[in-house]
Amino acid sequence: MKLNKPRTLSAYFFKILFSLLLIGGLVACSDDENGDNEGGQHPTISFSKIQLTEVMLEEPVTPVTSTKTYLYKSGRLSSYTYLQSFSAGGEAFEITGTTTVKYTDHQAVVTDETGTVSTYTLNDKGYAVSCIRQESDGTVRTYEFSYLVNTEDKYYLTNITERLNDGNVYSSIDIEFSGFRSIHIKQKVGSYEHNSTAITSPDNEIANISEIPYPYLAEQHPLEMHTVAIYGKLLGEPFDYFITQLSPDDNSESLETTTYTYTLDARGVVTSCKEVTNDKYGVAYRRTVNYTIE
């Protein structure tokens, strides 16, 4: 991770920097050593670039512009970079970084800047069936993945299970499909459990030719630990249609509902996604992510 224009900051701004440094998903791939010549099958992406840009405005932290860029070569993720820019004490700052990945036969090895190494074991189709994550502090996390396979032999993730050093299950996500237009999500993290249902309205059905993952799932633990695998399709294909609504299963008290609105270009490829969460008190949360897909 590289921080440009270092300055002596107050304790407040050190808190800003610290919180930014912890923003997840810092995973990427190298270009020259990514197994481009590896034989066998693997999932592919139709684009050469997927870039996400978002201005984060959560108080009391100063606004931060986040840019995440995924580059693809021959249909396979070849590099990922992130850039976070903000102002503090009248000065402009940038946080940048990359992580590397190497593909070999039935394996993808992701190494981040802290020395954490995630080793994915791939099946004959190039999808991950397990992962061992060795963190720089000595923590070892293991993951298992399960899929639904359709008639076209495409894989869709149905479960991720995380175990810690002691071998006990710490977290999991189960995804249950109902015609690919209604998706039930069960998340467990420690003693916390949360169930929700994501749907695509039949009156507003948008084909996901953009090949992007559903943001909500990609940002939930333990999937948030596997950004490169998600955007590289190592954890299965993205949903066939864009999710337009998400609601907690136990929604009678809060009346919480999240609505997603997409803007498309002439190709039908997404250029932005606006997310609005409403509860019984009104608008509780807004977010816009802009996409550049080439």
Score class of each variant (00 low, 15 high):
D250F: 07
G90F: 06
T121I: 07
P43M: 02
V110F: 11
G268I: 06
L217E: 02
L71P: 00
S182M: 09
H194P: 00
D31Y: 10
N208G: 04
K274P: 00
I95H: 04
Q220D: 06
F177D: 09
E113S: 13
L57N: 13
H221A: 05
V61R: 12
R7T: 14
I160T: 07
F86I: 05
T263S: 14
L264H: 05
K5Q: 11
K188M: 13
L20R: 13
T53Y: 03
E162V: 02
T65I: 11
N34G: 04
G282E: 06
A207S: 10
S10A: 10
Q84C: 04
L20A: 07
T271A: 02
Y216K: 10
T121H: 06
P215R: 05
I293S: 05
E176C: 02
S10I: 09
F47G: 01
K274M: 07
T98I: 15
P60C: 10
Y70N: 07
L3P: 00
D124M: 04
S196M: 15
G282W: 11
K5D: 14
S272E: 12
S182F: 00
V270W: 05
T197A: 06
S252I: 13
T197Q: 10
G35D: 06
H226V: 05
E162K: 07
E224V: 13
G39H: 05
N251G: 02
T277P: 04
L26N: 12
L164A: 11
Q107P: 01
R76Y: 06
K49I: 12
P238T: 03
S171Q: 07
A284N: 10
L17Y: 08
L83R: 14
Y127V: 09
L9V: 15
Y281D: 13
P222G: 03
C29Q: 08
S210M: 09
D249Y: 02
N159P: 01
